[in-house]
Design a protein around this nucleic acid. Structure first.
Ligand SMILES: [Zn+2]
Ligand SMILES: [Zn+2]
Ligand SMILES: [Zn+2]
Ligand SMILES: [Zn+2]
Lengths: 144, 144
DNA sequence: ACTTCTTTGAGACTCAATCTCAATAGAGGG
DNA sequence: CCCTCTATTGAGATTGAGTCTCAAAGAAGT
């Protein structure tokens, strides 16, 4: 399903209104696979003359997150990052402490074990955060 | 080694001064195994007539974290939690979304696999965050 | 076009955490 | 014990991501 249709469908199902601003924010998020913060998304919109207010960017992102179109990441640096989640398989993240590069990983074994561990401790998991922080071996990374 | 001696030793090694305030903050953190925020630690100190300013609580915690005596946890709710780390083995956390109970877990297999995964992706891990969020099956938990 | 209800924008506000800077107080030497 | 040199402290101001307020604008159904 196309981005626009998906957005319209979800908003309609929740009795929320389809607006130009929501479409613009959703388009902007769909335009890359990067892990961007709200301010970054807001600035990109302004740069292409699309005037959506900061408050609306935040509010729209909340709507998208609640409806599973966008994923919120907390990398521990004080601001949330967002990534398009539509049709994207689950993954976790490795972050380079030097160049802030973010790489995605997914390991079925870890996913299963953590589920098992939680069950043993008397929990039903809803979501999880698994992030690895370290140094990448990339040539272009500053610390080389 | 006793808490006080350990603190003195580390401060001395780093050419930092041993002060009454730093001792009080460290004592307060050592007094429980809970995962407390800075405001909570600050309030406990005031309650027992120990006047350490808020700024000093934050600054002292930073010193303790940098020197590996205290661990900083980010559970994604906008404020850092802290736990005594001296002589405590590595573990990760499961959090109940209903009652905010925090349970610790440690799985050697996960620890090994994540190390392996990182190596394969060209990273040397320095630290990691692994948190599971869900519902606990405790009788006393609100959502029952 | 009309009505109803939601959404938007601008700026005020929140809250954890950090910063500023004058006053205070460790630590080592004499 | 006193002196000097710095590091530390406290009170309050400041920061910055994110949220809230409310009057004006605008979806969507009739
Ligand atoms: Zn995962
Ligand atoms: Zn990702
Ligand atoms: Zn671990
Ligand atoms: Zn713990």
């Amino acid at each position: 399903m196309h981005n626009t249709d998906k957005l319209k469908q979800i908003l309609h199902k929740k009795n929320l209104r389809y607006t130009q601003q929501r479409q613009e924010v959703w388009d902007e998020i769909c335009s890359t696979n990067e892990h961007r913060d709200a301010e970054d998304i807001y600035n990109s919109l302004r740069k292409r003359q699309t005037n959506v207010s900061r408050a609306t960017v935040y509010r729209t992102i909340d709507v998208l997150v609640k409806n599973n179109l966008v994923r919120r990441l907390d990398l521990g640096d004080g601001r949330s990052r967002f990534e398009n989640k539509m049709g994207i398989a689950h993954h976790d993240h490795i972050v380079c402490l030097d160049c802030r590069k973010i790489v995605e990983f997914m390991n079925e074994e870890i996913e299963e074990i953590q589920e098992q561990v939680a069950k043993e401790m008397g929990f039903e998991i809803v979501r999880h955060v698994h992030q690895l922080f370290g140094h990448c071996l990339d040539e272009k990374c500053p610390n080389k």
